[in-house]
């Protein structure tokens, strides 16, 4: 199974094995990763699953939609080039090993 590593603002890391097709948000919420909320249930409506994707995985990410793009502009933590909504990223073999950083706040 692919793996995902979540990095907290204080540097601690947790690595999960996730079934292919699972989103970064769902894997985090289902496994009690702090700092990823997913309040809208994965509809790209709340921007509370904001993550920073480490640049070496950027190529393998799905393209960003207009909706995600506009929501990220208004996320609580600062938007950076590496910003994505975790609910819009499904983990597949190509993304296995992905490392993301969780921002300090989502609300």
């Amino acid at each position: 199974m692919p793996t995902v590593t979540y990095t907290q603002p204080n540097g601690t890391q947790q690595t999960l094995q996730v079934e292919e097709g699972t989103t970064l948000m769902r894997a985090a919420v289902s496994n009690g990763i702090d700092g990823i909320i997913g309040e809208c249930g994965g509809q790209a409506m709340c921007a509370t699953c904001h993550v920073y994707v480490r640049p070496q995985y950027a190529q393998a990410l799905p393209e960003i939609s207009d909706d995600e793009d506009e929501m990220l502009d208004c996320a609580t933590a600062e938007r950076m080039d590496s910003s994505r909504l975790g609910c819009q990223i499904k983990i597949d073999a190509e993304l296995s090993g992905i490392v993301v950083d969780i921002p300090a706040g989502q609300l």
Binding site: A44, M45, A47, D66, D67, E70, M71, D73, C74
Partner: peptide
């Protein structure tokens, strides 16, 4: 409708 930037700005 299909204008999340408007919505998020409106919330602020």
């Amino acid at each position: 409708v299909n204008a999340p930037a408007d919505h998020m700005a409106a919330r602020k």
